[in-house]
Amino acid sequence: MLIDATHRKWFGGCALGLALATSVYVPYSLHAPQGPKGSSSLGLVYGSVGFAFMLFVGVLGLRKKFPVWRVGRASWWMRGHLWFGFLSFPLILFHGGFHFGGPLTRTLMWLFIFVFISGLLGAALQHFIPRIHTAQLPMETIYEQIDRVRVQLATEARQLVDETCGALEGEVSRSSERQRAAAAGAGVTANLTILFGLQIGDQASNELRQFLENEIQPYLDRAGTRASRLGNPAQARAMFQQVRVLLPPTLHPNIDDLENVCEEKRQLDQQSQLHKVLHGWLLVHVPLSYALLLLGAWHAVVALKF
């Protein structure tokens, strides 16, 4: 979620809550005879409030699971997730008096740290990556459709090359009779020039087909950009420029289209990578969060009972 001016109220509320919690905690920690403890009244209050925040934060998953439930806009829940999640961390630290305690609480604390850091990382990623996405990937598509679009791009590239080569070969065969006739009546130099021109047409067609087979097709058939020079925008530009030199200007729009096909593939690869980054952190954050909630509940039961 983009954290901007619309979060001002949440930020203010959390800052106030943190200030209040800190202002209570400081004198309490200074004057408590045995130092701040989770089992003290105030410690229990911090723990309960912190755990309540954690539970609220955890309910976001449930809220997302049932998107049509009219229990508040999902964006409100997301804001609560971010800010209450953020606030729960100092509260839990206050609850334990900045001590990690025994094996269970130590595990809990480390879990919480991982969850908190992964959450911060996620918030940062959600803040910046969508903008990169928007700015750099104008040709993005739906993530699940990427493989399908790649297949379509490969087909399109082949059609473009066929069309270009067809036009080139047609041009050569149409003009060859006329040019060969002209060559027959021309001087030696002109003759060579005309015949050379015809040969170039054939060659260009072959070169273009080879370019398709050796570079474009393997690049489009595989996900990822590393293996191919076409994955590098600068190199791709240079390669297509070389192809353009071989062809008459009338066929350059086809090469532009071909270059766009490769560019779209490059963007799809990049989108795929960014998508993994943008959503991959959840693979850490979500299971750890559930583990944290379960262990937290276990800790609460054990602590209160024994």
Binding site: M1, L2, P67, V68, Q126, P130, I142, H279
Partner: peptide, 18 residues
């Protein structure tokens, strides 16, 4: 708003759910 959208498809899921 693409600067905000994380491409999570919650909107599509909500529409289908509805």
């Amino acid at each position: 708003d693409l600067d905000r959208c994380t491409r999570c498809d919650q909107c599509v899921r909500a529409c289908a759910d509805a």
